[in-house]
């Protein structure tokens, strides 16, 4: 495992911890899209079915379990927690996420490495992860003001994607048989979706002001 991959995993983990911290400390999930969180839960469940079929390393297995458990915990809090669910911006979170699921499933049936159950689900999870942030970005755009922890959460998620791209570039040059174009193309699309957010994040950071997205 190279340093970029490790930093990618760590920033991914940090983003989830920030989100859990926000929900736990403020007992509020305002500014967080339940639809994006549901999509991530689905992404992890679909991709990490290989927990039962392939063993890579203790690190991989532990991270997979952490990602599945944390994403389910977040969805549970936002839907069921007596206090937390009251702060959910339901009327702002109206993205039709089922269309994303349907489109990604259709694409996975058409484009995958091998037409087997696990391979189709794996490709589906990669495609879905690439677009899962969309409801979250739309919600932030609509509410305009972004609180600190929510801003950090999205920033670290974006950093995770950026590190994974560096990881693929590194692997491409250091490994003889590294070809993973499904991950790479999807990963590029996913990172590009953050470009706009990053732009405003850096402007607010430079001016030392609150993060605001244009209406």
């Amino acid at each position: 495992m190279n340093i970029f991959r490790f930093l990618g995993d760590m920033t991914h983990l940090i983003s989830i911890l920030i989100l859990l911290l926000k929900i736990y400390a403020t007992k509020s999930c305002s500014g967080i899209s339940l639809k994006t969180q549901e999509l991530y839960a689905l992404v992890f469940l679909a991709r990490y079915l290989d927990l039962f079929t392939d063993f890579i390393s203790v690190y991989n297995s532990v991270m997979k379990v952490v990602f599945i458990a944390s994403s389910l915990a977040i969805v549970w809090c936002m839907r069921r927690h007596r206090v937390v669910r009251r702060s959910y911006d339901k009327e702002l979170d109206t993205f039709r996420h089922y269309f994303l699921v349907a489109a990604c499933l259709a694409l996975a049936l058409l484009v995958q490495e091998k037409f087997t159950f696990l391979e189709v689900l794996w490709a589906f999870s990669i495609y879905l992860e690439a677009v899962a942030i969309l409801p979250q970005l739309v919600l932030l755009q609509r509410s305009g003001n972004v609180d600190n922890l929510t801003g950090q959460y999205v920033f670290f998620l974006g950093a995770y994607r950026a590190f994974y791209i560096l990881n693929w570039i590194y692997r491409y040059f250091t490994e003889t048989h590294f070809s993973r174009w499904i991950s790479c193309v999807s990963g590029l699309v996913q990172t590009a979706l953050y470009a706009d957010f990053f732009y405003y994040y850096f402007i607010s950071w430079k001016n030392n002001s609150k993060l605001q997205l244009p209406a």
Binding site: R5, S57, N167
Partner: peptide
């Protein structure tokens, strides 16, 4: 040789 790629990333 198989062209299967080990899914060693998360």
């Amino acid at each position: 040789a198989s062209n299967e790629v080990t899914k060693d990333e998360l």
